[in-house]
């Protein structure tokens, strides 16, 4: 029970830290001396930062009042962070290969890697057919039907 009720403290502190960083950025990332007072490029972001700060204070106040979240917040499961990192790695890997090797090469390879190794798919039919069909259908829609462009791949172009 004690661990759970700390939720609002953690949330409040997190929101406060975020809002302070945001307000800090407002002054360093936006030019301010433009426009009339209350109507500069800074005003709305600054106002939003203040709202966030206020919400953080409210959460901490709720913590002092002894609020508990109505539905329980699950703690971090075993391996959760590691597994998420792996999944996100595949996302980033696909984006990266898309940029450098182009759509036609990266898509079937990445789908194959995901189904075979991440999802442990045993059926060879799915492992081979799925990547090819998926690539072909996207290629068909965008290139053949809609005459659009998909990444050609920087490395492929230099060849």
């Amino acid at each position: 029970m004690i661990r759970k009720s700390k939720f609002y403290l953690a949330l409040g502190l997190g929101v406060l830290a975020f809002s302070i960083t945001w307000i800090f950025l407002v002054f360093f990332q936006i030019e301010g001396n433009i426009g009339s007072p209350g109507n500069t490029p800074r005003s709305i972001p600054f106002f939003l930062g203040c709202c966030m700060f206020l919400l953080g204070v409210i959460f901490i106040y709720q913590y002092y009042l002894g609020y508990r979240p109505k539905s329980s917040i699950e703690g971090i499961k075993k391996n959760e962070i590691k597994n998420i990192a792996i999944c996100i790695f595949f996302f980033v890997l696909y984006s990266f290969t898309l940029e450098w090797f182009g759509f036609l090469i990266s898509t079937p390879v990445i789908i194959f890697l995901i189904t075979r190794f991440l999802l442990q798919e045993k059926s060879w039919k799915i492992n081979i057919l799925f990547p090819i069909l998926m690539t072909a259908s996207i290629y068909f829609i965008f290139i053949t039907l809609l005459n659009s462009a998909l990444p050609r791949g920087t490395i492929i172009e230099l060849l």
């Binding site: 036609l104 090469i105 075979r116 060849l159």
Partner: peptide, 30 residues
């Protein structure tokens, strides 16, 4: 599997590359 992937890669790059190798005339691709 690594071998298989690399052979697919090589085959595909040849397939795509063939266009750019013959690129004496402009434009040879889109």
């Amino acid at each position: 599997i690594v071998k298989k992937i690399s052979s697919i890669l090589v085959a595909m790059s040849l397939l795509l590359g063939s266009n750019s190798f013959a690129a004496d005339k402009f434009p040879s691709k889109y």
